[in-house]
Write a protein that binds this DNA or RNA. Structure first.
Lengths: 356, 356
DNA sequence: TTGTAGGCGTTATCAA
DNA sequence: TTGATAACGCCTACAA
């Protein structure tokens, strides 16, 4: 709909009403199937509506009704299968509850976070689910949104507010268990690939890694923790395979390279695997690898990737359900937190070798 | 925004106006930075707005202005990197032109296509880009949308309308060249994985494959064309790796298996590679393989995947630009079509072996 | 069964 | 520089 196309203006309720010879109200009743309308009138109205190609104006309707039955989801890196699985679960859950979903991409930048929030707020969505990484500008704007009574749920974003629900996988524990697994296999020189100073979830995974090392009295070697120096949150659409590939190459060039690797996510792991193979080394004989997420591809790498399975669908579902509750509740709800368990999935990239 | 939360109602222009002692119009001028307002008044208004946590009502604004500066993008399978690259290019282009982007997922089902169109139309987006596969119900609804003067551009969707622009990669030629490449390498038994009866683009790729075989007088063996029997367009979120994996397994069990494979897309190819390795065969020695798309991962498979590069970003950019033109044009524009060339990227999965 | 009145929150336009 | 008025298209509430 745009005023720039005036040649054939959109018909309104009044137009139909005029053409049939009734009032707009009667037409409204027909269109919304509410209230009493004689069959005769209804037919005439429906016919006219079809003929004039009538389409209701959702803006006017929502303005009056004070609700849009629409929810917004803000994603950072849409290329990540984690985001997409999440989105699908959110959409499905919302759909079953009668809500539509609009997805906005923020490309992991604070400025674009704000733009996304703004455009969703502008469209008066009934609620917002935020799955981007925390950042100052975004947090501030988000706070304003919450204060103006738009229900918000965050997924994996470090954002504290007494009226905002929080859903997250247990990244810390996941990182701990991944590292623990490698330690159990006898590894001492365990690297971490994909660190970056900012950002919540990857940091927690890193913390879990550090905790596991400390607990087993393995000295932490900072050269084994690799990532980007730049602020990754400002690089739009960076490739995580690339991070894994380059990080691994750097690790392999160390005088005393690692024998095992924990990657921040599966795609980083895949990039690292590629670097290892390119160097003529074997997995897991020379270097064992653990990823994070368990994307469907992890089953198809060679060797299949040991990884920490994150309940992405559950995260999306829970977030959507909590949001709907908030939307439908007449009272204010206190903050609820759901930290979901992850599960270590052991495959061949850490030692179990079925064949070959 | 929801009427169910009445405890703290949103302040409006009038509320601010009342509190400052001016008219709503003056406040509007301050908020929109339009027209003359004395510095003194402006300051008072801005202060009050901040204090009351004012947020403009986008619905009312759009209703009055008859435009939302928002565009909708309907995607089928959001898990496909092709879709995500497309979305990012679309978003970026639109952003530079002052539009926001809302993405809807239709999960490849006709019914959900319609739901997506409907909710976008309900929010009065200024235009819609459709990148889902063609289907009867969706096409019909889409036609209605176009008739009611909402600008539409389709990407790779077989939808004919004199006022709808069309952008697509040259799937036919891409499929032809991929197959041609395998034929040039001496292959005669070339399989196709990922066929499905419905759907536009994969069909074109298949047609290109058939054409290449025919042109070289290679007999077409229908057992070498594999896919799903079910209507894939009704399977929400099916995994393409899975299709490749299972399709390849079926092909390997043939009395006379193929020596080469053209996969409908890179993920299908990756699934097929996994099946080939699991059978203890080598790529490309036993079976050569070509994918389609050139997702970033194609570089990191082992061996790296030969594939047909599709200009995903360009597709998104062009579609967005065409849509904006339509939105901003005062006249009706005739249909424009852009078929974009693809490029065969030869890597090691079809023969070039650098090491090992 | 249908109609009337008024307002949702904003802004275009004209007037002061 | 500010205000009054009307309208965007629809719907709730009440009246006939």
């Amino acid at each position: 709909m745009n005023k720039k196309h005036p040649n054939r203006k959109q018909p309104t309720l009044s137009d139909i009403a005029a053409s049939v010879g009734v009032t707009p109200m009667t037409v409204s009743r027909v269109i919304n199937e509410s209230g009493y309308v004689s069959d005769e009138t209804r037919e005439k109205v429906l016919l006219a509506a079809k003929e004039m190609n009538y389409r209701r104006n959702g803006l006017a309707r929502a303005l009056k009704r004070q609700s849009t039955e629409t929810v917004g989801l803000v994603l950072g890196d849409i290329s990540n299968p984690y985001s997409t699985e999440l989105a699908r679960a959110v959409r499905e859950t919302l759909f079953n509850r009668g809500f539509s979903l609009f997805i906005c991409i923020s490309e992991h930048s604070a400025k674009e976070d704000v733009v996304a929030f703004e455009s969703l707020a502008d469209h008066s969505v009934d609620g917002i689910i935020v799955a981007t990484r925390s950042n100052e500008g975004g947090d501030e704007y988000l706070r304003g949104i919450v204060e103006s009574n738009i229900p918000v749920v965050v997924i994996g974003r470090d954002f504290q507010h007494e009226e905002v629900d929080f859903v997250s996988p247990d990244n810390f524990k996941g990182g701990f268990e991944a590292t623990q697994h490698l330690i159990d296999l006898g590894h001492k020189r365990i690297a971490f690939v994909g660190a970056n100073l900012k950002g919540g979830s990857s940091l927690k995974r890193l913390q879990g890694y550090l905790k596991a090392l400390t607990e087993h009295e393995i000295e932490i070697d900072e050269r084994l923790i690799t990532g980007r120096n730049e602020d990754v949150s400002e690089i739009p659409g960076y490739s995580t395979e690339e991070i894994g590939f380059e990080g691994m190459k750097r690790l392999l060039s160390l005088p005393n390279p690692p024998t095992a690797l924990f990657a921040r996510n599966d795609f980083t792991a895949i990039g690292a695997m590629s670097a290892i193979k390119e160097a003529g080394l074997s997995i897991p004989e020379d270097i064992a690898i653990v990823g994070f997420d368990d994307v469907s591809l992890a089953l198809r790498t060679s060797p299949p990737l040991t990884t920490v399975r994150q309940p992405m669908r559950l995260e999306g579902q829970l977030a959507a359900e909590m949001l709907v509750e908030r939307i439908e509740s007449k009272e204010r709800l206190p903050r609820r937190e759901r930290i979901l368990n992850c599960e270590l999935i052991v495959r061949e990239s850490t030692g179990l070798r079925k064949r070959q």
